[in-house]
Amino acid sequence: MKVGIVQFPGTNCEYDTQYAFEKLGAQTSILWHEDAAVAEDLDLIVIAGGFSYGDYLRSGAIASKSPIMKAVKAHAEAGKKVLGICNGFQVLTETHMLPGALKRNEHLHFISKHHNLKVASNANNFLEKFDNSDVVNIPIAHHDGNFFIDADGLQELYDNDQVLLHYCDAQGNISNPNGSVDSIAGICNKEKNVFGLMPHPERAMEEVLGSADGIKMLEGLM
């Protein structure tokens, strides 16, 4: 299993992500944003979290136009997997590889805390190790995590089983930290090979650090 992790100026979760996938037995490499091509034998490309280009213009906007993103698109079009975490999710919506957009959090605060998430659909690689409605505890850390999509787009997401996770409380009741439409924390594309979420599974890999629920998520992609 070979995993490439994209690094833009301002990315800051690439080494956590590398640690997480190596812990699961993957062979990892860091991909530089100026590279216009990536190795063909990569199974998964992860766009890691952080603040690419200082979030200038809009979060993920400038990164979405960088040379590596053409290669990431080609990788996805070949049916291979892509995962965007936090800023990576923003980059994937800005490239239109995933629908919708991430706006400033409704109450304008940067939120950094553990949050519970409820599995909305396990009919995909990423969450196949879970049952629907399972609750997991994963850290969130974002300023622009307020997922927006119009009513038609939202219906389409549900019709195609593209909603992955909802924010919830420990009992699984919906609890919305940032104003996201329908409390959505993560989605995938129609083909179910491009995944994006605001929470950080790579920061939930060790019980001693608060949660190891991220292991089961990332294992699904292995």
């Binding site: 213009l57 809009r58 906007a61 919506t93």
Partner: peptide, 9 residues
């Protein structure tokens, strides 16, 4: 269309 605005929002 390409960069300055995100026409989704």
């Amino acid at each position: 269309e390409d960069l300055l605005a995100n026409t989704v929002i």
